[in-house]
């Protein structure tokens, strides 16, 4: 199994973004996804600058993928997606069927992101015929369902043609809206949001009235309050046929987390504990067929 670094889901200042990627040039991640996947109003890096940054990372030896916006509403949003899809060189992660269509039109291979709604091998097969070469499983699916999907895919002759990636670490993307919940919290209208989401580099915690971590507000996106952490299940992932483990960037301790994932999946270490590097509790319920917010690894003694 290989490691990938998912797109940064938050609005970080330009310098922070550049420093972040610079610090991962020599890290054990094999694949880096980058681009703005949440809100088209976040433009500290223009689309062309994302492409340039991606090219630099590619030169440094990483496999680089440009990720497209997830919720595409206005024509101006689509213009940015088109620029990414027409970059002429680098691979693209399609996070909406609109981006799939743009890639298929050019007969270019693409990666299907976690919001594409691939719940069965029939969908996988159909998208493969349009150019899909790798897919990221919807975060709400579990290990047994993935096993079934890959068994069906195998019967369709797809096993050698498609790679499977699982969102394994980070606040999970759960929902997208026309409304900006960060602007709502700050009592600002969305059209004058002043990009206040930059004040929350790890999102804004939304807890129950009893103080239980529930969701994380990140602009128009709602994320899990807890942090997905599937490293304790890495052997099961390998056994099922997962090719790539996706780690979603957080502002601090990302290097330590990557190192730990890397050492465990290479068999150098068996220590899967990362909790001292997290600002929210962990979870793994989806993978085990439970509520996403459950954390079973603890009970199962897998931690």
């Amino acid at each position: 199994m290989r490691l990938s670094l998912g797109p940064i889901q938050y609005l970080w200042p330009r310098q922070t973004v550049e420093d972040f990627y610079q610090s991962h040039v020599d890290s054990p991640v094999d694949i880096i996804y980058l681009g703005e996947t949440v809100c088209a109003k976040r433009r500290y890096l223009k689309t062309t600058e994302w492409i340039d940054l991606a090219k630099e990372l590619a030169k440094a030896g990483k496999q680089v993928v440009l990720s497209t916006l997830t919720l595409i509403e206005a024509k101006s949003d689509m213009a940015g997606v088109k620029r990414l899809c027409n970059n002429g060189d680098l691979a693209v992660e399609a996070n909406d069927m609109g981006a799939v269509q743009l890639m298929a039109d050019q007969s270019l291979p693409f990666i299907g992101g976690p919001a594409l709604n691939i719940y069965n091998a029939y969908t996988l097969n159909l998208l493969h015929q349009q150019g899909l070469i790798r897919w990221v499983m919807p975060v709400e699916l579990d290990a047994e369902t993935l096993k079934d999907i890959l068994a069906d895919a195998d019967e369709m002759g797809l096993s050698d043609k498609i790679e499977t990636e699982v969102f394994s670490f980070g606040h999970m993307p759960l929902a997208y809206s026309a409304r900006c919940f960060t602007a709502r919290f700050r009592n600002l209208p969305k059209d004058d949001c002043q990009l206040v989401c930059q004040d929350y580099p790890e999102g804004l915690a939304m807890d129950s009235q009893e103080g239980e971590a529930f969701f994380t507000i990140n602009g128009i996106q709602t994320q899990s309050g807890r942090i997905q952490h599937l490293l304790p299940h890495w052997q099961k992932m390998q056994q099922i046929g997962v090719d790539i483990i996706r780690l979603s960037p957080q502002p601090q301790h990302m290097n330590e987390i990557i190192q730990r994932y890397s050492q465990v999946i290479q068999g150098i270490s068996t220590d899967t504990d990362i909790e001292s590097w997290l600002n929210s509790p962990a979870c793994d319920g989806y993978w085990l067929g439970k509520s996403g917010m459950d954390y079973i690894a603890v009970e199962a003694g897998l931690k």
């Binding site: 709604n117 919807p138 999970m172 759960l174 929902a175 319920g285």
Partner: peptide, 21 residues
């Protein structure tokens, strides 16, 4: 629905069941 339909997993995160699944 304030979230875009078909891409909202809040319910399964809390209960294990979502509109999609």
């Amino acid at each position: 629905c304030v979230m875009v339909e078909g891409r909202c997993l809040l319910s399964s995160y809390a209960t294990g069941e979502s509109p999609n699944t």
